[in-house]
Every structure is written in C-alpha cells, then in structure tokens.
Amino acid sequence: MRRSRSSPILSAGVVVVSGPLLMFSAYLLFAGHNQPGGGFSGGLVAGVAVLLVWAAGGIDSVRRILPVRSNVLLGAGLSLAALTGFAAFLPGLAFLESGYIKLHPPLVGEIKIVSALFFDIGVYLVVVGMAVGLVKALGEEESAEAPEVGA
C-alpha cells in the first residue's frame, strides 16, 4: 500500500472519515469522566485516524498533517499529567487529588471543569504520541523496489 499505488477511493474515504473520527476522539476524551470513554480510548481513536492517513497517503502525509515529532507529544503528555498531580499541592490537596469548578456561561448551561481532565489530556497525548511514533518508525519504506508484503 505504498503512496504511489494507493487507491483514490481509499484517499477520498479517509478524507471523509477522519474528521468525524477526530471529533469522536475528542468527545471520548471530554465525556470520559461521566460516560464511557476517557483519555486512553480517545487517544486510541486518534491513533486509528493517524493509521488511516498513513494508509491513504503514506508517511509523508502523516508528516504533513502532524508536523510534530512524536517525542514531543510523548513528553508533553507525560509532563502535563505529572504537573496536574503537583498542581493539587497548591490548594493543599494530596498529589493528583482532583477538584472541580462549575461555570455558568450564558446560553450553554452549566459546565463543570474537573482538574482530572488535564490529567486525562496528558494520557491522551501519550497514547497519540505512541501511535504516531510507531507509525512513523514502521511506516518508512525500506527501499523503492521492495515488494509489497501483507497489508
């Protein structure tokens, strides 16, 4: 499934699907505290989207759409999760103990922001970083003439 031979149907399909896929991924992340989902599953969905992009356009498309090195995602995610833990010290709570505030912006109704959300975003970034890192590592072509094997 090299870029030069990728089917136009697949490319078009990916363009159509990846948008909703990423929205679903974000939904899982934010809904996770009260509904099934969370940073881990949300990150996995985004990882699937990255793989689809690779299948449609090869390694270069992945690089173009996500011009961030996977190590940056991994590091940012881990740091965010750890910092959320330490932030609990500020109001005198224990490490990683969560607090929440309720906002009442007009027209939207009540929005509850839980500090654990930032921890979950960290988890999300790490999972996405894992998927991107492995796709970039494995998705490189060995050589232009290599016979296509398997997928």
């Binding site: 996770g32 505290h33 009260n34 509904q35 099934p36 989902g37 969370g38 940073g39 881990f40 996977s70 991994l74 590091g75 995610g77 881990l78 999760a81 750890a82 833990g85 490490f95 990683l96 103990e97 969560s98 607090g99 929440y100 509850k112 839980v114 654990a116 921890f119 979950d120 960290g122 988890v123 790490v126 999972v127 970083g129 894992m130 890192g133 492995l134």
Partner: peptide, 29 residues
C-alpha cells in the same frame, strides 16, 4: 465529581498507577 467510576479510578483514585503506566508507555514507545 465524575459519574463514570472506571474513569474516576483511572485519573483520581488510582491516578498514581496511571501516571506510572503512561510512563511505561512512553519508555516502551
């Protein structure tokens, strides 16, 4: 402040474990 207890365990009650797990994930990647 969450009604999905699975997620609350992951990010709050057992948050330390999760932090350890994502550290392993980063190292493995």
């Amino acid at each position: 402040g969450g009604s999905n207890v699975v997620n609350v365990i992951l990010v709050d009650f057992r948050g330390f474990d999760t932090l350890g797990e994502i550290t392993v994930l980063v190292a493995a990647t």
